[in-house]
Amino acid sequence: MTMTTVIQRAVWVLFLWPYLLTCSLPLDCREDHGSFSRCPSISQEKLLDRVIQHAELIYRVSEESCSLFEEMFVPFPLQLQRNQAGYACITKTLPIPSSKSEIQQISDKWLLHSVLMLVQSWIEPLVYLQATLDRYDGAPDMLLNKTKWVSEKLISLEQGVVVLIKKMLNEGMTTTAYSEQGLLQFDGQPEMLESVMRDYTLLSCFKKDAHKMEILLKLLKCRQTDTYNCA
């Protein structure tokens, strides 16, 4: 893709960006004093719909961020190198069902906790990613803003999922912070190539996991309405 095409795409998305944000439906689960007083007042069905819409938008923006980073900083040979080198995603060790048969067999409870595990495991890495992208020469503000926006919305999604767990399963607040279990190690100052590939891997893995969050939540929604026909 030529630089002219990249610039044209960046300008086009820049004009659409405010519209995309205004189209999203915020979870609005936390008031100024930090309580979860609004989400419990929403019906379970509407809360689940809002959580799904939140996850959809997070995945869409993560996809745009990954594509933009790829076009700006990752030549095609390095894209192949990432695939061939088999860079592992930081959530690979989490007990998240991956195959179709595994997902179909797990309970609604485990679907929700799987989403929560994914959300919590990415909060800290996205904060790191914001800091490291600030050090890139020529990193467009659009990429930085998208990464910051996704990081903030991920925290909001976590709040919505926690309230949904309480509402659907009558459980207490879930406090397990999977991002603190050594999933991420950042030591020293790597060479530029390694830094680019590491950040590219983070963006690619997050895009994949954001899609998985969306799929699991939609499966949960399907189970609420059509238990026997949710492939």
Score class of each variant (00 low, 15 high):
M1T: 10
Q8A: 07
Q8N: 01
R9H: 11
V11Q: 06
W12V: 14
W17R: 07
Y19Q: 05
L20R: 13
L21Y: 00
T22Y: 13
L27C: 07
D28G: 07
D28L: 15
C29Q: 07
R30C: 11
E31P: 04
E31N: 15
G34A: 13
S35F: 03
P40A: 04
I42G: 00
K46A: 15
R50P: 12
I52L: 03
I52V: 14
Q53T: 06
A55D: 09
Y59I: 06
R60G: 10
S67T: 08
P75G: 09
L80M: 13
Q81T: 13
G86K: 09
Y87L: 08
P97S: 01
S99E: 12
S99W: 02
Q105K: 05
S107M: 09
H113Y: 11
S114Q: 07
E124K: 05
L126T: 10
L133K: 04
P140T: 02
N145I: 03
E152N: 04
K153G: 07
I155C: 15
L157M: 15
E158M: 10
V161I: 11
T175K: 00
E180S: 14
Q181L: 15
D187S: 09
P190F: 05
E194M: 03
V196Y: 06
M197R: 07
R198G: 11
F206H: 06
K207V: 15
K208I: 09
I215A: 10
L216E: 03
L219G: 01
L220C: 02
L220I: 06
K221T: 00
Y228D: 09
A231K: 05
